[in-house]
Design a protein around this nucleic acid. Structure first.
Lengths: 297, 297
DNA sequence: GCAAGTGATAACCCTATGTTATCAGCGGAA
DNA sequence: TTCCGCTGATAACATAGGGTTATCACTTGC
């Protein structure tokens, strides 16, 4: 069944005039007549009465009209849907994120993107940076907000921010009021660190920083993530290092003190696979890139 | 947008093999490839990945697939609907009927037709025979169960049954146990008659019947229809004449006694206009004609 | 490394579909 | 009535879209 036949039918049912209906569709009148005739042939019934005093819908046509119009409208919607998928206005994305990434600008980024592209459904999956990179590499995820410290083949990283590590102390600590701190000042402290498994590279950098400052940190407790670390620091278990954006948590039982000199940096980036998967993904990446060069708070 | 393109898309999405999909649709592989390519061009996106290791759906295609399949299925349903309208399997009919017609075989007729053609919606409109004939003539009704006593131009009548009038007496009437009655026997009775306006021809025939029997009936009460007449007869207002099929009402306060000799007959027929309106109407008429030659109870 | 199978491409063919010009029928106005 | 203007159908012709077969470049599996 030809959609153009249905289109001709619906148009003629409205105008009841072959010539003007043909003009409306941009074809000549004979061609239009043939479209109608072919549709009638295919359906095995006459749809119009072309008797004297013009054209009128037969009962058969009257009954078929709503079905035809409905299908026609649906076809237009389907076409429009396809086009919106094609240019990334609609789609579905599975996007991974790390807990730390959600402490920074990422939620606001996603929110403004969702407002911009309401038909792009973004499914969010939390995980460690390595897990997410793995998910993107295997195609389980379309993209992910990760902390790319190691080069991962076949993944493209689009930088968003770089966050520096700061020291976190209990608010009654003797250094809690200082505006900055040297790592060496913490040589005698006990430490609460995020366990190496969570982020081996950053863990090693922290250890290296301490070593270069002349001491090997005494680790009292290892925890699974930075939030837990801050909690234990607040509980007096020791001091730690977390990314600066976590000060946004607004906890008053701990103090975030910048480190003098070079401190480890945690980059935040959007990772994606190398293949052109969907326009929606391209569009998200483009959006993130356009907004990227902003310094994190 | 070409439905055959969508069909090709859905088929290929299922088989993931150009050759077998093409075979399934009964076209050659190059023709099939072109259909897919044209669809991709029109939608402005690639739908399939034709890389090594065969064909696979791209993310875009995966997202578009349900829309395409849905539209395709709907198009098939629409086509099927059209065909069923064309051959009368579905449709909508406005059918008139008289109260008396519904005392006979008509309800059973309509019921068995409804079972046979579940997609034909029959809207029933009650009215006097003349009103219904007028409705059919003007196109307000598609058909009607009427009692054609006068020839009406431009209407076709398809006979169903012919019902004879019988006398109706109170069950305690002195003739109530007789197996038949002569009209002359009722000369001294008072009568309950259906008013002339309801059915002038049959009214006149009843009067004529009485006149030929040698008396002019004393009319105690005129009522609007036969049911009311039977009710009043039961209440002792007098005797009357109604069509025999009304004995089906099963009332025990009245007796229906056949009339000896010639009694007025009330034909029942399906009336339709002269024009070919819809296959459903043709089908109903055909059905009624096929079942017609049955004698009424 | 070869055989088998894939989808894309080329070359050709034809029919479906478009066009313009014209016809026959009907309605309204003089 | 008679004629004009409008209708949709038809004829004759042009063309392009879509079909076909033959073949290619490429991958995969034994």
């Amino acid at each position: 069944m030809d959609l153009r036949g249905l289109e001709a039918f619906c148009t003629l049912a409205r105008t009841l005039n072959f010539r003007s209906a043909a003009a409306e569709l941009g074809v000549s009148q004979p061609a239009f007549s043939i479209r109608i005739a072919r549709l009638e042939d295919e359906l095995g019934m006459r749809l119009f009465d072309r008797s004297r005093a013009g054209v009128s819908l037969l009962e058969t046509g009257r009954q078929f009209l709503p079905h035809a119009c409905d299908l026609l409208e649906r076809s237009i919607v389907v076409r429009e849907t396809a086009l919106s998928i094609a240019d990334g206005r609609s789609g579905q994305l599975r996007v991974g994120y790390t807990p730390v990434s959600f402490m920074g600008d990422v939620p606001r980024l996603l929110r403004s993107y969702a407002l911009l592209k309401p038909n792009v459904r973004i499914e969010l999956i939390e995980g460690l940076s390595g897990e997410i990179e793995d998910g993107v590499a295997t195609g389980r995820l379309d993209a992910g907000f990760v902390h790319p410290l190691t080069a991962t083949p076949d993944l493209q990283f689009h930088p968003i921010t770089v966050d520096s590590y700061v020291s976190v102390l209990p608010s009654d600590h003797r250094y809690a009021e200082r505006t900055s701190i040297r790592v060496a000042d913490l040589a005698d402290e006990e430490f609460v660190l995020v366990e190496r498994n969570t982020g081996p590279v950053i863990y090693d950098r922290i250890i290296t920083m301490c070593t270069q400052a002349g001491f090997s940190p005494r680790i009292r407790q290892e925890v699974v993530n930075s939030i837990a670390a801050i909690g234990l620091v607040g509980a007096g278990y020791g001091v730690g290092f977390v990314v600066g954006s976590l000060r946004k948590l607004g906890r008053d039982d701990v103090a975030f003190i910048p480190i003098e000199g070079k401190s480890p940096e945690l980059p935040l980036a959007l990772a994606r696979g190398p293949m052109k998967v969907s326009p929606a993904l391209d569009d998200l990446v483009e959006f993130v890139e356009a907004r990227a060069p902003q310094k994190s708070a």
